[in-house]
Design a protein around this nucleic acid. Structure first.
Lengths: 343, 343
DNA sequence: CTGTTAGCGCATTCAT
DNA sequence: ATGAATGCGCTAACAG
C-alpha cells in the first residue's frame, strides 16, 4: 500500500509562489498578513485538502496532545467506566487518549510505560498491576518530565498523585449493616489479597466485627485466587461442605456474589431470610438480579474524571508542584433485596 | 512543569567526540562500525539513559506504529472485549493502540477520524455510530493512504473491509428454537432499529416465524429507544398491560432480557414454564442469573482479533489490494434454564 | 507585509 | 570506519 504523499505547506507555497512561512502565517491568522494572500492560501489549502502534520508539530513543540492510560484490563465494568470518565475529561481539554492494558503483567506494564515515554505522551494515568512492587519505571517517566497520576490501586510506598476509592470504608459499611440487621455469622469471600483493594475489603470486614464485638471465625473467611463468578461458586461450596453456621455473606465483588447466590439457592436456602448477602461494585446487573443485590457503589466515573483533572492541572501549572495530591473517594452502601432492610 | 531536555544522539556524540551519524549507526548495529566505538556509544547511551524520540522517527519514516480504533462506547462487555482482542493482536505485532469512543455521535466520529489522520496513525478500525450515513470521512482516510476496517456495524452502502457478526442468524436460531419447544406467542423486545444490528435481529425473528408458519402478531413486537435493562422493564410493562397471550420472549440483548425477567417474575409468571425467554450477547452474568439465561453467544474476542489481523495484512502487502475482505462470524445459541430444553 | 534561516531528533545518502 | 550534508513538515526569530 503506497502512501500518497500528503500535501504540505510547501506545496501550497509553491502553487502560490510565496514562502512557506507566509502560508503558515495565513493558516494561523497571524496579525501581519494581507487579507488577499490569506484568502488565496486558505483557498488553496481547501483545494489541496491540506492537513497539518501533527508529528512535525509535536516534534517542534515537544508536546503531543496525547495522554496515556494504563489499566490492568479494560474488559469489565469498573475500568471501562473509569476510562469513560477520563476520556470525557481529557477530550474536553483537547487531548487524545492512548489506552493500554497490562493484563496484570508487570513486564507488560513496564513496556507500556516505556512506549509512552518514547512516544512523548504529555502525561500518564495508571492503575498498577497487583504485582507492581518497584517503581523505577514510574520514576523514569517523572524524570522525563511526564507527570503521572495513580488511580484506584494504591502503591503504599510510592509518592505520587493518587486518586483512590476507600474500599475499607465500603466494606466496613456493608458488614456493619449486616451486623445491625442481626447477623452474627457473616462469611467473607475474599479476593486475592495480593490486591491492596481486596486486602482493604477484608480489613473492613474484620474491623466491623471488632468494633461491634462480634468474634471473628476464621473458618468463615474464604480466600479466592480470582474474582469472577466461578470463584463465588467455589467459595460457597467450601463454606457449605462443613455445614457451618452461616447467616450472612460479604462478597468481595458483585461477580463473586452472584456465583455464591447460585449455590445458596441450589442448596435450598432462602435469600435474604436464611442467608443475606452483600456485594461490591454495583455492576449494571446488580439491581436486576433476583433477588436484587445489595452492594457497595463506587463513584467510578468520577474517579476517572478526577484523575484526569489532576493530570490536566499539571499542564496548567508550569511550576513543579510542591506536594502530591491524595484524593480518596467514598463509596456508598446500596441496600436491595438480598439483605433485609434495617428497621 | 519544565520538561528536562531529553538526551539525544547529539549529546552522546559530543560526549564521545564523534559524529551523530556514528552514534546512530552504533545504536542500530550497522555493519561498518568498529567494535570499540560501538561499545563506547552503547555505554554512554546507557549512562545518559538515552531514549530514541519516536516522533522524530515517525516523521522520518512516515509511520507511527499506532493503530486507531473508534467504538461507539467502551463501557459494556461487547466493545470492551473486542478491544481486548484487537489489543492482543496489534501489540503482538509491535503496534500501539489508540482507543477512542464516539458516544454514538456522528460529529464526534468525524472529529476522531480527523485527529487520527492528523496524527498519521498507520491504520484504523471502526465500528460506526448508528447515525453514520455518509462516508466522506472514511474516504478521506483512505485517500490519505490509511487503511480502514469496519467491524460489527455494517455500512451497507459503503465498500470497505468488514468483519461482522451474523445477528440475523443468531436471532433466527433463538426464535426457531423457541418455536420448536412449542411456543406460539413469542414477543420480541426490539432495540432501536436505526441500528442495523438490531434490525437484523428483528428480521431473524420475523423470518423464523414465516419459515415455521407461525403468524406474526405485531402487538407482540415492542420497539425500544434504547437497550439497557430499563428498556426491558418498560417493554414488558407495555406487553403485560393488554394481558396478551404470551409464552415466549426474544430480547434484543441480555441487559433487556434481565429487565424483562424482573417484571415477569413480579407479575407472578414462572420462567420458563409460563414464559420462556432468550437474550443475546452472553454477558458474563447470563449464566449466573436466576434462572440462568438462554442467550446467543457471539465470538467477540475473535471479532477483534480478526479485524486487527485484516488491518495488519494491509501493512504486509505493499500492493494495494484488489478487493475488500468481507467476513461474517457466526453466533451460537446457548440454551440454559430460562427456556425449556428441546426434547 | 513577506522571505530567509534555523532547528526540533533522527537516519541516510554521499563523501572521505 | 567515520563525518558532513540532507530532509521529514513545520514554526519562530530575524531580516528586509
Amino acid at each position: 500500500m503506497q502512501k500518497p504523499r500528503q500535501t504540505t505547506i510547501i506545496d501550497i507555497a509553491r502553487a502560490l509562489r510565496v514562502s512557506p512561512s507566509t502560508v503558515s502565517r495565513a493558516l494561523h491568522n497571524h496579525p501581519s498578513i494581507s487579507a488577499a494572500t490569506k484568502r488565496a492560501v486558505l483557498e488553496m489549502a481547501e483545494k489541496f485538502d491540506y492537513q497539518p502534520n501533527l508529528l512535525a508539530l509535536s516534534l517542534l513543540n515537544k508536546k503531543t496532545g496525547i495522554i496515556g492510560i494504563v489499566v490492568p484490563e479494560i474488559t469489565g465494568y469498573f475500568f471501562a467506566t473509569v476510562i469513560s470518565g477520563v476520556q470525557d475529561m481529557v477530550s474536553s481539554a483537547g487531548y487524545k487518549l492512548l489506552i493500554c492494558q497490562s493484563n496484570e503483567s508487570f513486564e507488560e506494564e513496564k513496556k507500556l510505560l516505556q512506549d509512552m515515554a518514547l512516544l512523548r505522551v504529555d502525561g500518564v494515568l495508571i492503575s498498577p498491576t497487583f504485582r507492581t512492587k518497584t517503581f523505577d519505571h514510574f520514576d523514569r517517566l517523572k524524570n522525563a518530565g511526564i507527570p503521572l497520576v495513580i488511580f484506584d490501586r494504591d502503591c503504599p510506598n510510592y509518592k505520587a498523585d493518587k486518586v483512590l476509592v476507600d474500599s475499607y470504608d465500603g466494606a466496613y459499611q456493608a458488614v456493619e449493616y449486616l451486623i445491625k440487621t442481626g447477623r452474627q455469622h457473616i462469611a467473607h469471600i475474599a479476593g486475592p489479597i495480593a490486591f491492596p483493594t481486596f486486602k482493604q475489603r477484608l480489613d473492613g470486614y474484620l474491623h466491623a466485627h471488632y468494633d461491634n464485638n462480634i468474634p471473628i471465625r476464621s473458618e468463615l473467611i474464604v480466600y479466592s485466587d480470582g474474582f469472577s463468578s466461578d470463584y463465588g461458586v467455589d467459595a460457597l461450596e467450601k463454606l457449605m461442605i462443613c455445614n457451618k453456621k452461616l447467616d450472612g455473606i460479604f462478597a468481595v465483588n458483585d461477580a463473586v456474589a452472584i456465583g455464591a447466590m447460585r449455590v445458596i439457592r441450589e442448596k435450598g436456602y432462602r435469600i435474604p431470610e436464611d442467608i443475606s448477602i452483600v456485594g461490591f461494585d454495583d455492576e449494571s446487573y446488580a439491581q436486576y438480579y433476583f433477588p436484587s443485590l445489595s452492594t457497595v457503589w463506587q463513584p467510578v466515573y468520577e474517579l476517572g474524571m478526577l484523575s484526569a483533572k489532576i493530570l490536566l492541572d499539571h499542564f496548567a501549572n508550569k511550576e513543579p508542584r510542591e506536594s502530591y495530591r491524595y484524593e480518596v473517594l467514598k463509596p456508598e452502601l446500596v441496600v436491595r433485596d438480598s439483605s433485609p432492610p434495617l428497621y
